[in-house]
Design a protein around this nucleic acid. Structure first.
Lengths: 180, 180
DNA sequence: CAGGCCATGTAATCAGTTACATGATTAG
DNA sequence: CTAATCATGTAACTGATTACATGGCCTG
């Protein structure tokens, strides 16, 4: 009965208060998405499993005929979440970036094409950063410091990346002699 | 007959010359691993598929009774690879970082525990960076500029991350008043 | 009354890892 | 002679996405 990271996303969000599966998805999309994405296809089955193992508890919150189930942490769930958070083990980081892969194999491309590609990468990171920036005020207003710090990290990271690609593009454009 | 990124890792590496499945894995581990990992469980079946669709060709290179198969790109494979590289479409980037997830939910931890966690994250990124640094000279000596640039990007990225976590840890340690 | 959002779920599929199985060659 | 490395492969499993199906509520 090992729990995966997705289970902790759910437990973590429920640690902030009772939420429905739908809520969890919305909140995750606004907060953890940039370093841990989830989908309904994982959330709903996971909610069932967590209920079965007694870490969370369902409570009916239907309005008329419209179904709605709120979940909240049990004492056991709280404890499990806290133990996970407090455990300082080193966990692995995974990055999958198909554009970087393309860049890696881009030696056959012309300088112009490479610059266009770098420009696209820069743009992509800028987009992610400004997407995060949009709900930065919300994150700042909350009483949870780490959540805000993680958001700031995301913004800074993507801006740093955008910057790096921009600089490389500039280098390629000016110092052609360096090519090859 | 859509090709996934892993297929392009293989095509890209074979674009540098004929290699065995084993070679491909070794080279990928030294180069693309930090933004696109692969395993034998993907490489061997993919080599079979690529052979069947005529993008690569197998050539026996056994030595005595020791089996060895070298693969090289066909004209069609070269073309497919080049078309992929030249296509400037925006592809998605995925990050999965369980430690960042923990940090995100770390508001219940004490300042000391959080600092320890940040220290571990800093250390992890430093490790990745110095791992990459080890074969930086090899990358620098090759005639492929983009491969070297991508490696430099990886090093700089992880060092930037290490730095960021280090700074946050410092902030937490000194400016306690900012907590909560 | 239509479109958007709230809400729940499942089935099929896909990508990728892990563990295993096998054996040859080479360097110390 | 033995350990490391070269070399190829598969089966089982896991984690996650996608697409679909269904329907109610609320706002303009």
């Amino acid at each position: 009965m090992e729990l995966g990271p997705t289970a902790y996303v759910i437990l973590g969000i429920l640690g902030l208060g009772p939420h429905s599966g739908y809520d969890i998805k919305q909140l995750a999309d606004l907060s953890t998405r940039h370093f841990w994405a989830t989908s309904y296809g994982q959330i709903y089955p996971e909610l069932k499993r967590l209920t079965e193992s007694g870490l969370i508890k369902a409570e009916d919150a239907s309005k008329g005929t419209r179904q709605r189930t709120l979940y909240h942490l049990t004492a056991k769930g709280k404890q499990t979440l806290h133990m996970w958070v407090a455990d300082p083990e080193i966990l692995n980081l995974e990055i999958r970036d198909e554009m970087l892969l393309k860049l890696f194999f881009a030696d056959a491309m012309s300088g112009k094409e490479t610059v266009r590609h770098l420009e696209a990468m820069r743009h992509r990171h800028q987009e992610v950063a400004s997407g995060l920036r949009e709900h930065e005020p919300v994150a700042a207003a909350q009483p949870y410091r780490m959540k805000y710090e993680v958001m700031k990290f995301g913004i800074a990271l993507h801006e740093w990346c955008a910057d790096w690609y921009g600089k490389l593009a500039k280098d390629l454009e000016s110092g052609r002699e360096a090519k090859r």
